[in-house]
Amino acid sequence: MNLLIEFFGILKSTVIDVLPILSIIVIFQLLVIRRPIPDIKQVGFGFFYVLIGLAFFLLGLEKALFPLGKIMAEQLTASEFINAGAVISWTDYTWVYIFAAAIGFSTTIAEPSLIAVALKAEEVSGGGIRANSLRIAVAIGVAIGIALGSYRIVVGHPIHYYIISGYILVVIQTFFCPKIIVPLAYDSGGVTTSTVTVPLVAALGLGLASTIPGRSPLIDGFGLIAFASLFPIIAVMAYAQISQLQTKKLTESENSNAL
């Protein structure tokens, strides 16, 4: 019964969240485009399923994953678990980095907006880009990003050194990787961090920043999400570069075989 009340509460907030989008679409469709929406019945059902789906999804996350994930982030960063001496060494936090990478990878695989973009990319590229490979590449990027971001909080380096070095890497890769992947790679930075990843990652960052002496949640707690949106760009371009190299090698060996 309680579950039902909670479900309708979340459904209501999802509907409120979608209302601005829906009204913009309807207003422009009626007043500017002035044409009925094609397949309106199907589109209506589609919206309905999206709303119901999101509400179920969010309710389930709040029931199961978020509380557990947050408790685990707290327990892993708590001083009793770390058991460090008077001087904190970054190696005391090995399990935190592993947890950060694992949770980054696994939440990214379940991220609905990434699934949407990956499906679209597979469709547009005519299957040249596989949706699942793209998602795995992005997830590896997020895993590396969040692990590195946690390391940064532990050692206390300023965030902009990391982000700016990352940008420089992105610039260099942009010039060497296949042009066709560049816009998709840039996009994948933004889509990784939404419904599933943000709450868990934010809990990890704030937990780390508040348990390590000398870190402030204001300056160090935020910023993990920035890592999670930068490294997928690098990972997706690297994935394109690696597959380009492989096809090159393959054609080269075929050519030499022919001779």
Binding site: V43, G44, F48, Y49, I52, G53, G60, L65
Partner: peptide
């Protein structure tokens, strides 16, 4: 039990979302 119910909800939710995506959001 909470975690089990939550997981089923998450799975159902993701399924409905993807299903509705191709029917509604992409076409519009």
């Amino acid at each position: 039990s909470d975690i089990f119910v939550g997981l089923i909800l998450v799975i159902l939710g993701l399924t409905f979302f993807i299903y509705g995506l191709e029917m509604g959001l992409f076409p519009i």
